[in-house]
Design a binder for these strands. Structure first.
Length: 486
RNA sequence: GCGGAGUUAGUUUAGUCUGGUAUGACGUCAGCUUCCCAAGCUGAAGGCCGCGGGUUCAAAUCCCGCACUCCGCACCA
């Protein structure tokens, strides 16, 4: 496992990701783009996500719009009430959260949703000065992390979504009716979200425009312990941290000891662990961290962050929040539409358990956990699971002449629509193998002189560097079975 | 947003103090050679030296502003 800088270098050199608009001086911070290798990895990661979570659990997937109306965020609480009150020092320009600074210096607790005047009054009454330079503060302002956009010629107010899940809540009544929904019902979405971070940093780890894969499981709150599927994962080991160090336990034990509140939540922590295990992330370096009341998002009743240890510390990859009926009841009130549904004989407003995954951070972590410096063979190897590799196979001619190039071309044309194949004729063969190792291609096929005699090629394994001679006619089935999803 | 350190080719880097438009390595491309693990030889392409302004006969180099990257603080609903 190598460090952040090594992953960054690989990303820039091999087309995984790089800064957006980099040829222009006015490029903004916090925007990065995926190159060909990055897109390929991302697509395969998402296919695995669909297999391991969406299809496994019979969820529905939607694709909502990124720009959403003001009402959505009034109802969700992202606008108005939940903007952060901030104060800025007139002397040194340092910015602070008004509520927290006042509480720290005077013990006076003002809720963050209070009128801005209340903060200003508290500041002047208690003679609060900048903790850094003792300067005076400007008036309290609201800072909202959402990007506002103007729609149409009248610039009507709308917002880029700060999380993908609001579409799922808003669409729930229609989806439940038309898709013949039954609780518990998972609805999922992959897409971009936008947050106006004050200080974006560390490339993919804190972006202003980022990918989320979110799942909202709608459930009947009175049936959280009736989870038949629980038996599928009851013996899966998860790592949970409540206060001290993370502890490994089975999902069953987690429920029995009350560390996880019910079978319903434990089931999803279990399948999420199984999913991440298949991405190649080292699960022994992971934990579900139970969040305290102060850390939880405003909508969460119970929250576990799935975090993974990397060379730059623990990274939050997934937020698992029990959002209760917070979202549906607020949308019901605001829209005056019905969100209640029938579950058997019960009329219920479903509760929601959310599995909100950060895709970019997950991809970074997969890269970091997969990248090895193989000093013995003087090579960098990206030891990705074969089904996640940006390129599955390299087709190489040992030398260009004697018809070997043409033979390799033939094999490439035959296979390129069946998997991600890469054709390479130029340079020393060892160099070409190493190039493939760096983007994690699990196989390299080499056409040599014997190929022309008996229609066989050698196939090289990325990890062992061993080569076997196989018939060209067997190539398809060998490769395709090796790169299949588990 | 605050403080600090940086920014030179795809990557990495010399040169900045002491002004005269840039060095090496790796990588890339073409050819030769070799013919299964980054070998060698020859050649080539690739630089608004982060951006803008100032000083100067002359700026990668000195000065100012800005942007970006990294680290720490704050923030992350």
């Amino acid at each position: 496992m190598l460090d952040y800088e090594s992953v960054m270098k690989l990303a820039l050199e091999r087309g995984f990701y790089f800064p957006s608009c980099e040829v222009y001086a006015d490029a903004q911070a916090g925007f990065w783009e995926y190159g060909p290798s990055g897109v390929s990895l991302k697509n395969k990661f998402l296919e695995l996500w669909r297999r391991e979570l969406i299809r496994r659990d019979g969820m529905l997937e939607i694709d909502g719009s990124q720009i959403m109306s003001k009402s959505v965020f009034e109802a969700s609480g992202h606008l108005g009430n939940f903007a952060d009150p901030i104060i800025k020092c007139m002397k040194c320009n340092a910015t602070f959260r008004a509520d927290r600074t006042i509480a720290e210096l005077t013990q006076i607790e003002i809720p963050e949703s209070a009128d801005l005047e209340e903060f200003d009054n508290a500041i002047s009454e208690n003679n609060i000065k900048c903790p850094k330079c003792k300067g005076d503060f400007e008036k309290t302002k609201n800072f909202n992390m959402m990007f506002k956009v103007g729609i149409g010629p009248e610039d009507e107010e709308a917002y880029l979504r700060p999380e993908t899940c609001q579409s799922i809540f808003v669409d729930f009544p229609r989806l439940y009716k038309t898709m013949r929904g039954k609780l518990p019902l998972g609805i999922a979405q992959v897409g971009k979200s936008f947050r106006n971070e004050i200080a974006p940093r560390q490339s993919l780890l804190r972006l202003r425009e980022f990918y989320q894969a979110e799942i909202e499981v709608f459930c009947n709150p009175s049936k959280l312990s009736e989870m038949e599927k629980f038996s599928e994962i009851q013996d899966v080991t998860i790592r949970i941290q409540t206060d001290a160090d993370p502890v490994s336990m089975t999902c069953k034990e987690a429920v029995e000891t009350g560390i996880v509140p019910n079978k319903f939540v434990a089931y999803y922590l279990g399948i999420l662990t199984e999913f991440y295990e298949k991405t190649g992330i080292d699960i022994s370096k992971s934990r579900f961290r139970k969040l305290g009341d102060k850390e939880k998002a405003f909508y969460a009743e119970v929250a576990f962050d799935f975090e993974v240890e990397t060379t730059i510390g623990w990274l939050e990859l997934v937020a698992c929040n029990y959002r209760s009926d917070y979202d549906l009841s607020n949308h019901e009130k605001k829209s005056k539409q019905k969100f209640e549904i029938m579950d058997g004989d019960d009329k219920v407003l479903p509760h929601v358990f959310e599995i909100s995954m950060g895709i970019d951070r997950s991809l970074y972590t997969i890269l970091e956990h997969s990248l090895e410096d193989d000093k013995e063979h003087e090579r960098l190897v990206l030891g990705l699971k074969p089904y996640l590799a940006p390129m599955h196979i390299g087709i190489l001619s040992l030398v260009k002449k004697d018809g070997l190039k043409e033979k390799a071309d033939e094999i490439y044309v035959e296979i390129k629509r069946k998997c991600d194949a890469f054709l390479d004729h130029s340079g020393a063969i060892g160099r070409r193998y190493r190039r493939l190792d760096e983007i994690g291609a699990p196989f390299a096929v080499t056409v040599d002189h014997q190929t022309l005699e008996d229609e066989t090629v050698t196939i090289r394994n990325r990890d062992s560097m061993e080569q076997n001679r196989i018939k060209i006619s067997e190539l398809d089935s060998i490769v395709i079975s090796s790169i299949a999803y588990p």
